[in-house]
């Protein structure tokens, strides 16, 4: 059974979303704080570029919050790179405590949930959470060199080049972090690394179901329930899973399907990566909430917890989903 926590006095102080060139051409481009024109972010390597995007997101969020670095008590963050090297190299520039977390593509929500837990328990007054992903760094780590001529399958998702950061604190603002559900790792006997949406749909289904049960809520209580990167396939799977249980998941949206224009040939089944739900939430969703278009949302970050080695050894791909509930504060 998954752990659901109800938070007390946790509010989003500020957030920032930084994106790469492909995302800057997508439907959400107006909502990003800054867009780089290449995935290197004008740095020497993909990894340096990802670090630069993450740094830009954090500094932008800090600036928007009006808080100096000294007021940040702790930071939670992560990315997809081996041993979180990108986040760790960035964290060495931070004067506050850093806890690196790996949730694969659920890292954004995992870090938000942890930061909120610390603030709610009064262990911290202000906590930073961030996550990033980069097409180049994750392709070369998990798949193949970016210029390799492999015919990608239709179920492929494209790693978003982007970074999102948010500061949570106890000062009242327009957006409240209400609760979270830390997901359980699931094994659905899945070994196909070309389709991660389908197995992650199971994790999303379980975490959402657990969250609704613990919060004593139904789908109708939310304007939107947004999953991280279930892909167009996983989105259909999760909706059908609830249908089989007699529930209509009518308000589902997947951030991977929002980030790129629909039907683009080189985007396959949509976007994925830590940056996917991060920049969609910290750019688009939060602005929509402040504009009073969304009142209550459940964000469900989903992750496929495999490595190239584990897949090479024909092990299953474990999956997880972490959910965070946000609500607009009425005056």
């Amino acid at each position: 059974m998954s752990l659901t926590l109800k938070f007390k006095d946790v509010y989003i102080q500020a957030s920032a979303a930084v994106a790469g060139p492909e995302e800057a051409q997508g439907p959400l481009k107006e909502y990003f704080d800054y867009c780089f024109s290449n995935i290197y972010a004008d740095q020497k390597s993909y990894e340096d570029g990802e670090k630069e995007m993450s740094k830009t997101a954090i500094l932008t969020a800090l600036k928007k919050s009006g808080l100096p670095s000294s007021k940040i008590d702790i930071a939670f963050g992560g990315d997809l790179t081996d041993q979180l090297a990108v986040s760790n190299l960035l964290a060495k520039e931070m004067p506050y405590s850093f806890v690196g977390v790996y949730g694969a593509c659920s890292t954004a929500m995992l870090s938000l949930a942890l930061a909120s837990t610390f603030v709610s328990s009064k262990l911290a007054t202000n906590a930073l959470c961030f996550s990033s992903s980069n097409y180049g760094s994750s392709e070369r780590q998990f798949r193949y060199p970016t210029e390799y001529g492999i015919e990608k399958k239709d179920t492929t998702t494209i790693t978003v080049s982007g970074a999102g950061a948010a500061i949570v604190g106890n000062r009242k603002t327009k957006v409240k972090v209400v609760s979270c559900t830390f997901g359980k790792v699931h094994d659905v006997k899945w070994t196909d690394a070309n389709d991660m949406g389908s197995p992650m749909a199971f994790a999303a289904y379980d975490t959402i179901a657990q969250h609704l049960k613990h919060s004593k809520r139904t789908f109708k209580d939310y304007d939107l329930i947004m999953t991280g990167d279930l892909s167009s396939i996983g989105s259909k799977v999760v909706k059908e899973m609830f249908e089989k249980e007699g529930q209509v998941f009518f308000n589902h949206v997947d951030s991977g399907s929002l980030i790129y224009e629909k039907g683009e040939w080189d985007k396959f089944s949509g976007g994925s990566g830590c940056g996917c739900i991060a920049i969609t939430t910290y750019g688009y969703i939060l602005q929509k909430m402040e504009q009073k278009d969304i009142k209550r949302i459940l964000l469900v970050g989903t992750g496929a917890l495999h490595s190239k080695t584990s897949v090479g050894q024909k092990k299953v791909i474990p999956v997880i989903a972490h959910a965070v509930e946000l609500e607009r504060v009425e005056e």
Partner: peptide
């Protein structure tokens, strides 16, 4: 939900292959 039901749903939603 049990594994069999889930895997049936997945199989049903697998995209068509353009062989």
């Amino acid at each position: 939900m049990d594994y069999t039901t889930y895997s049936e749903i997945v199989k049903k939603n697998a995209p068509k292959k353009h062989m």
